[in-house]
């Protein structure tokens, strides 16, 4: 398993022998905008993840740029590492706190 060779399977990946690892997908919709987190998908390797991201999340839009990254490679801020998925967001007013929360409405600057 490529996923388990380099590191433990990330949080959610329960049965690494079953199914491909999870990737997070970031898309730049237009020039001048940030890459925005749009979701995730499963792929066996980086090239496949890019292909799937193109097919699934952009369906033919020209000029887009896509980043994919193994979910298990993302370091996210949490106050309590004991229970990473359900850790409290504590006293922060969480507009954009963690892992997945990148705003849908990227401002035009």
């Amino acid at each position: 398993m490529s996923g388990t060779e380099q590191h433990g399977s990330g949080g959610a990946g329960r049965g690494p022998q079953e199914g491909w690892p999870l990737y997070e997908v970031f898309v730049r919709g237009k020039r001048g905008l940030n890459h925005v987190h749009v979701g995730s998908l499963h792929a066996a390797d980086d090239a496949m993840a890019l292909g799937h991201a193109r097919d699934l999340y952009t369906r033919r839009n020209e000029g887009v740029s896509i980043w994919v990254v193994r979910s298990s490679h993302i370091a996210a801020s949490t106050r309590d590492e004991k229970d990473p998925f359900f850790a409290p967001s504590a006293d922060k007013v969480y507009r954009h706190p963690t892992f997945y929360d990148i705003p849908d409405d990227v401002p035009h600057i």
């Binding site: 329960r14 199914g19 999870l22």
Partner: peptide, 23 residues
């Protein structure tokens, strides 16, 4: 198929695993 994938993706943010859900 795409919608199914978006939704499995959302479920996985809750710690679910798609292979398990498929099973």
């Amino acid at each position: 198929a795409g919608h199914g994938l978006y939704l499995y993706s959302a479920a996985e943010t809750l710690g679910a695993d798609r292979a398990d859900l498929t099973a």
